[in-house]
Design a protein around this nucleic acid. Structure first.
Lengths: 255, 255
DNA sequence: CGCTTCTTTGATTCAACTCAATGGATGTGG
DNA sequence: CCACATCCATTGAGTTGAATCAAAGAAGCG
């Protein structure tokens, strides 16, 4: 299938953080050139991984943390009853695998949503570099801290928001992440299924579908299968902030 | 009110990790004696803080992380609309404040639920110690990792569980944490209000109250105001695992 | 082109919420 | 010590937002 001339030997493509377009967003952010080089020696870039392949699975021994380089990944846990809960969707420059540090094995699974490349960073070596480069240690702590804050926000969204507000918040979150990556904040592709969006937000697929239809009917978005265009960003933002008005305010606040 | 003879000068009580009963559960876990001493020099124990006082508030500059020593603390965030979302309840040996690392200021607020003492650990110094003591750096990473896993579990509980299952899971979680602390796993006090339990679990106070009543009617628990006794642990566990049967299974799993 | 998977839409149900009222604790001042 | 006020919790009645059940339509795939 692949002609000799077309073969690309990915093992020969040296993963260098310094020439990676993501290095200001990803783990090396803020490192000096000299320090960057130390990091590069332990980072191992992957060849492209096709959609639906696992990067790691729950219970796997903890080898590395991973930075998404291109594509997208969903991270999920499965409980005793076999139910899946998606914890997050990850895009280029974002790091996965932090949950495995505590028990030296993964508690989540990570699967690609489309063809994806990533960088593996062996945890032992990362840990060593932290001792050598204070700024790198800080960066690791920052990333872990961010992960915690992100989950706090997600918890807030799920616990306090209506289905409509959750969907709007989800769309805005993706939008701003794509903007940070230099892509359009208005138009993008949803690499995940309706099912997965629902699972993540604590809604059923039917509810997700109905709300997409409703948003479209109201001119907030245009959706064609996986591609979405946010036609009225202010209105979508307004929904996030709870201006779909329903009792709201201190529905369940503690004095 | 306080007679001279009764004055306790808490500033003279040296907070030492080595003689703290929590040191095997708390941050110093697994450190060597020599390393413990380095830690002790930067840890500052608090005097008892009365119920309802803040340890830190959102937007406060990030000085320290804190270990609860006695009592209990709730950590919450407030969104633009002023709604409160409780992120967690923290008991002796548990650490709060990790969310502030990224932006050098707190994103959550922490308030005592009863008279509480804690240990403050200045982040800058902690960061230094991490560089000196590899095992300490590992421990910090582990604690951050645990926080992430805990939130993953909470997300699963809230997104996939019925009100009944959430309450049961909550009671079991408290039970096992108290057991780890050497207290009774069967009988304990709920330092938080019904309102706060509901807020945390994404339920209204009425639902919490009704389910407490129902559990009591069915002989699972005995509840008297703040004190609770788990009378039928196996049955409560069964509810956690979803044996209250309702469709369940792959309600919203992704293939 | 037939098969499967994903998505949309409609009708109906139900778990949890809202609204409302009462009951019990706790606290304060006279 | 009691009267009163406040706060928190419980209980009941009625409502509703999202789930479930059901079916049809569209897209992707070998």
């Amino acid at each position: 299938m692949i002609e000799p001339g077309q073969i690309i030997d990915f093992s020969k493509i040296k993963a260098t953080c310094s020439n990676c377009s993501l290095h200001e967003l990803c783990l090396p952010r803020g490192l000096k050139i000299a320090d960057l080089e130390k990091l590069e020696h332990v980072v191992k870039g992957s060849r492209p991984i096709e959609k639906g392949k696992h990067i790691f699975r729950a219970e796997d021994p903890f080898e590395s943390i991973y930075a998404v380089r291109t594509g997208s990944v969903k991270v999920y846990i499965i409980n005793e009853s076999g139910e899946e809960q998606i914890i997050g969707f990850y895009f280029p420059g974002e790091i996965i695998g932090f949950d495995a540090i505590e028990h030296h094995k993964h508690t989540c699974s990570a699967v690609t949503l489309e063809t994806t490349t990533y960088c593996a960073m062996p945890y032992g070596k990362m840990s060593d570099i932290c001792k050598e480069i204070p700024e790198f240690q800080n960066q690791m702590f920052r990333l872990l801290s961010r992960e915690i804050s992100n989950e706090n926000q997600l918890l807030l969204t799920i616990n306090k928001r209506s289905a409509e507000e959750r969907i709007a918040t989800f769309l805005i979150s993706l939008s701003s992440r794509f903007r940070n990556l230099g892509y359009s904040a208005k138009e993008y592709n949803l690499p995940m299924s309706r099912q997965e969006i629902g699972n993540y937000l604590g809604l059923t697929i039917e509810t997700v579908s109905r709300l997409f239809t409703k948003f479209q009917r109201n001119g907030l978005v245009k959706i064609d299968r996986k591609s979405i265009s946010l036609e009225n960003l202010p209105a979508i933002h307004a929904i996030c902030d709870g201006f779909s008005e329903r009792g709201k305010d201190n529905k369940n606040s503690v004095a």
